[in-house]
Design a protein around this nucleic acid. Structure first.
Lengths: 208, 208, 208, 208
DNA sequence: GATGAATGAGCATTCATTCAT
DNA sequence: TATGAATGAATGCTCATTCAT
């Protein structure tokens, strides 16, 4: 079965291949991750991108536009893959929930810097950009909540406060981006495995 | 039994009263929380503190020194209170674990801005300051891990990876500072209650 | 008698028809008039002209060349028409003087922006361009002076300082470009009528 | 009779002594006059003032604030002196008119650069600054108009369009700042003398 | 302690201009 | 001809910090 590189299909949600970032965007990502939005200067970004300063401005209208493009790209990819992960599960609420958690965990490892910047720089976003980002965050939260509620409804989960559990699970996955290192002691599959188990416990799924 | 305001005694770990912040430090806290370290200027801080710029420098040697003082104060308080919470539990490993989690949760609500700044601005700390901070973070992590291991050893917890669970619990508590609002729908006790339950589930404590 | 559109003949000096400005020049004129030479950017001009930036450079070598072309075109037209106006008067010094003033007034209404830019941006001209422009200004001044002196010689004017009077009349006409609006309360003929009368009084012409 | 340096009294309106400009303002005045507002850079001004760039900003909030201060100071002085000149004339409308014109002419020589910048940089003023400036210009215009109308009412002047004559006189005086040089062939008294005579002719005053 | 005045270095952004395509 | 991409130098302005008073 064919799948395009960019758009996650039902089957492809586990793979986060090459980020499709333009060179300036990739350069900015590293600089933002290391120094923060306000600690990063346009000169740093231009240098990292191998461009002159006006060369960088030729591609992006402003520093804020770079942040916006970066964050939107990442969030859109996450939402698309998470939706695919949910779809891929068919009718079983438990599998659906596990898929969503796995996808979130994988995203926060594969797109570590993007996720970190997105979660860290909300306060650096101008109102319009922030509003868009918040919308995407809410959509993600809702997907988790829906998966939990489906499990509760089916009797598979024992979870009194689905909303709080969803937030806890999201926090857990987001925080992966803070500490996970590809060359660290845990493999990506280890991390996935443990976080799916954490999530199962948080929603009171029966032991497997 | 009386206790001093600042130092948590065995009994007082639940109360986070007035932060003992000097006015310039309190001003800086708000500015850092809203704008981030690099987004905050000395002028903003001085103005928020009702001081002239050199007046501010009279109290603190540099912007970095302000950040260091802010973060150290907060972490020290957290460690002291968590230690008191653990001591207060006597010999029961489950109670000890629950106390530690409760204390962490309460700290991240009562010292929301401090916790947020400390967790967010690690990359803005100069090496020495960062090293000190990392030491404090590790000490906190260890207290959680110890509490988990004690419960595992006593047979109260079913937890295969205590280190990962400790990190998960810490992440959960830290993230409270991101979303909790004193005037929000959940009371502090609600938040504590839910997070203790989340933590119990994460370590596989038997249902109460 | 037919006349070409561009070159004022003895009879046509009252009509300032379509300025023969190329589209980029016309665009630049508006931008220079609104923002001044230094406040205008090549990008503004290119956009106003519906051209790309290099497209604009295809037509004009530099921003300075645009200014030079604009100003020279306007001054040349003014000089040609003023000469025609003087010629058109035949031998009567009073009529000749009145024609010159009328022509100047009409020019500063019909070519408001050009006149404004020319008078305002002398300091923005590079030496060579400025020298050329100053030559044109002097030629204009001389035409007024000559007309005055002829009237003085014939006994029609009572004017002690023809040079100063000529400068005053020129200032008066130039300043029309600052305030005249085609849709304002005064018609072009009103303005002409009043300024011819002002000029007559300045040179001490006998009342008509 | 005593008079302060700054405030023109009834007797002192002919003297424009030391402009009371602060050093940065005086420096800015020269740079604005030579290069225009947009052609002048903050660095030029700072250098001319013998200050560093932030040193300049210590005194003035922005480039625009410098322009505003410069223009307001000049216009206020002009208005005060013109009012004093009118008052000084007692009840004679002709003298009052002559005094007003003389004062205007003297101002545009003594405050050549200020007047030039004020008249030239209207388009560089931000709306609020411009509105204030326009108010001052209108006040000046009105003083001339009032003087003319008084002379018309008394039968001393034969002037059909006082408003247009007032504008012409103002234009004439303003334009002095364009060409007058203290070391030129005409003394200040020469210039005053000629312009008062020009103004008298423009309003149709009887020959003296 | 506080303040007014100052500064070198840096900020995001834009400038006029060029050149390969 | 027109364009997309690029650039060195400059723009107005702010930074953290210092110091004489």
């Amino acid at each position: 079965m064919e799948m395009s590189e960019e758009i996650a299909t039902t089957a492809g949600w586990r793979e986060f291949g090459d980020d499709a970032l333009s060179p300036p965007l990739r350069a900015a990502l590293g600089v933002f991750a290391r120094h923060g939005y306000h600690g990063a200067s346009i000169r740093m970004i231009a240098e990292a991108a191998g461009l002159s300063v006006p060369g960088l401005y030729h591609h992006y209208r402003s520093k804020q536009a770079i942040l916006a493009a970066l964050v939107d790209t990442a969030m859109a990819e996450m939402l698309a893959n998470t939706a695919a992960a949910a779809d891929d599960a068919g009718d079983d609420p438990v599998t659906r929930f596990e898929n969503v958690v796995e996808c979130l965990a994988r995203f926060h490892m594969a797109r570590r810097d993007q996720a970190f910047v997105a979660s860290t720089e909300m306060r650096s976003m101008e109102p319009e950009v922030r509003a868009h980002h918040v919308g995407q965050r809410d959509a993600q939260q809702e997907m988790i909540e829906d998966a939990i509620r489906a499990g509760v409804d089916s009797g598979d989960f024992a979870c009194e406060f689905p909303e709080d559990a969803a937030r806890a699970i999201a926090s857990l996955c987001v925080s992966i981006a803070n500490w996970y290192r590809p060359d660290g002691p845990l493999s990506a599959d280890d991390v996935v495995c443990r976080h799916v188990e954490f999530a199962r416990r948080l929603v009171g799924a029966a032991a497997r």
